[in-house]
C-alpha cells in the first residue's frame, strides 16, 4: 500500500518561504507529476517527503500514518535525485545492493533481488562495470534500480530525465512508465517539462510561484486550464476578453457563439489553443487578420496574426504563409475554453 497525503505543507529556507500551503493526495499505485518552472520548490517537496528537509508546517501522511519526525532511512519513501549520484567506489551491482546491504539482508536474497531488478531496468550484464564505464542513460537506470530494489511504498523521482538527450529521454520515459505500470508503485514524478508530465502521469499537479495552481488529469490541465497562467504554461497564448450576452461572447475582435454557456452580463476571459484555430480560404470564418510573423517548426508552422488590436498565435500545417498576407480564421466554438470567473469579479 502507499497512499500519500501532503496536507498544507510549508517549506522554508531561513526566513524565505519556498512552498506555501501545498496539499496533494496521491492514491495507491498512482503516478502524479509535480510540474513547475525552475526554482518553485519541486525538489524541496520531494526532499520533505523523503525526510531530508524539515517542513515548517503541515502534515505528510502515508497510509494515514504521519511521516514527519521519522528518520529518512526509516521512511518507506525513496528519492532518486536529478543527478544519478552513483557511489564511485562501488561497481554497478554494489551500488544497486546498497539499500539492501544497509538493511543487512542475506546475501542470497540480495543476489536474487538485484538480478530481477537489473532485468527490469535492462541492466543485465553490466553488474561488474565500474561507474565511469557507464553511459549517462545507464547511470540513470542504475540509480533507478538502486531505489526500486528496496521496494519502497513511494518512489520520488526528481527530474530523472533532465540530464539525458532527446532520444534517451524518450526511452527512459517509456521505461519508467512501463515499470510503474507493472509494479504499481506510488510515484511522485518531478519535472519542469510539460510534455513529459502530460505523457507519463495519471495526474499532474502544476506548481507556480510556490503554490499549487491546478491538479487534474493531463487532459484537464491541457484543455481546461483553471486560469490564464496555467494556460500559458501549457503553451496557450490566445486570450479573448469580453462580455457574455445572448449565448455569445462579445469581444473587440468579434462575436463568438458559446453554446451551453449561460450567465448573461458576465465579463469573461476565454482561450483557444494555437493548434485549434483553423486558417481557411473558403467557407465561413470568424476573424480576418494579417500575418505578422511566421516560424517553421517542422510538423507545423507557428503564425502570428494581427486582427484588430489582438495578436493571435496559430499553429498550422500550412508552411507557405508569408508575412503581410491576409488570412481568414475559424475558431471552432467547442474549442473555446472559458475560464471560471474569479469570485469577486462576477458581475461588471
Amino acid at each position: 500500500m502507499g497512499e500519500l497525503i501532503l496536507d498544507r505543507l510549508i517549506l522554508r529556507f531561513g526566513r524565505r518561504t519556498v512552498v506555501e500551503d501545498f496539499s496533494l493526495k496521491v492514491a495507491d499505485g498512482e503516478l502524479v507529476s509535480i510540474l513547475g518552472p525552475s526554482g518553485v520548490g519541486k525538489t524541496s517537496i520531494l526532499k520533505a517527503v523523503a525526510g531530508l528537509l524539515q517542513p515548517a508546517g503541515g502534515k505528510i501522511l502515508l497510509d494515514g500514518r504521519p511521516l514527519i519526525g521519522t528518520a529518512p532511512e526509516k521512511r518507506p519513501a525513496v528519492m532518486v535525485f536529478q543527478k544519478p549520484l552513483l557511489f564511485p567506489f562501488l561497481n554497478v551491482e554494489q551500488n544497486i545492493a546498497f539499500g539492501l546491504r544497509m538493511r543487512r539482508l542475506a546475501d542470497s536474497k540480495i543476489r536474487r533481488d538485484i538480478a530481477s531488478i537489473m532485468e527490469l531496468t535492462r541492466l543485465t550484464g553490466l553488474g561488474r562495470r565500474r561507474i565511469h564505464e557507464l553511459s549517462g542513460g545507464q547511470q540513470q537506470r542504475v540509480s533507478l534500480a538502486r531505489a526500486l530494489v528496496v521496494k519502497p511504498a513511494v518512489l520520488l523521482l526528481d527530474e530523472p530525465l533532465s540530464n539525458l538527450d532527446a532520444d534517451l529521454r524518450q526511452q527512459m520515459r517509456d521505461l519508467i512508465h512501463k515499470i510503474q505500470a507493472r509494479t504499481r508503485i506510488t510515484t511522485l514524478f518531478v519535472t519542469h517539462d510539460q510534455a513529459e508530465a502530460l505523457a507519463i502521469s495519471h495526474r499532474v499537479a502544476l506548481l507556480l510561484e510556490g503554490r499549487l495552481r491546478q491538479v487534474g488529469s493531463p487532459r484537464e490541465l491541457f484543455h481546461r486550464p483553471a486560469d490564464p497562467e496555467v494556460a500559458r504554461f501549457f503553451g496557450g497564448t490566445n486570450f479573448l476578453e469580453g462580455r457574455f450576452e445572448k449565448g455569445a461572447l462579445h469581444t473587440q475582435v468579434g462575436v463568438f457563439p458559446l453554446p451551453g454557456f449561460n450567465g448573461n452580463g458576465h465579463r469573461l476571459t476565454a482561450t483557444i489553443r494555437p493548434e485549434d484555430i483553423v486558417i481557411r480560404e473558403r467557407g465561413p470564418y470568424d476573424l480576418e487578420g494579417r500575418v505578422v510573423r511566421t516560424r517553421f517548426e517542422g510538423m507545423a508552422t507557428r503564425v502570428w496574426v494581427q486582427s484588430g488590436n489582438t495578436l493571435l498565435v496559430v499553429l498550422t500545417p500550412d508552411s507557405r504563409l508569408t508575412p503581410g498576407q491576409r488570412v481568414r480564421m475559424h475558431l471552432p466554438p467547442e474549442k473555446i475554453h472559458v475560464f471560471p470567473p474569479p469570485p469577486d469579479e462576477r458581475r461588471a
Binding site: 525526510g51 529518512p72 532511512e73 528519492m79 543527478k83 539499500g99 544497509m102
Partner: peptide, 29 residues
Amino acid sequence: YNVEFEDQARSLGATGVQTVVRVMIPMTL
C-alpha cells in the same frame, strides 16, 4: 564534495553512522 551523496544514502536506508562509514569516508579516502 557533493553532500547529496549522503542524502541519497539516507534515503536508500543508511543510518547516520552507516552514511559516515559507508559513504563519507570511502568518498574522501
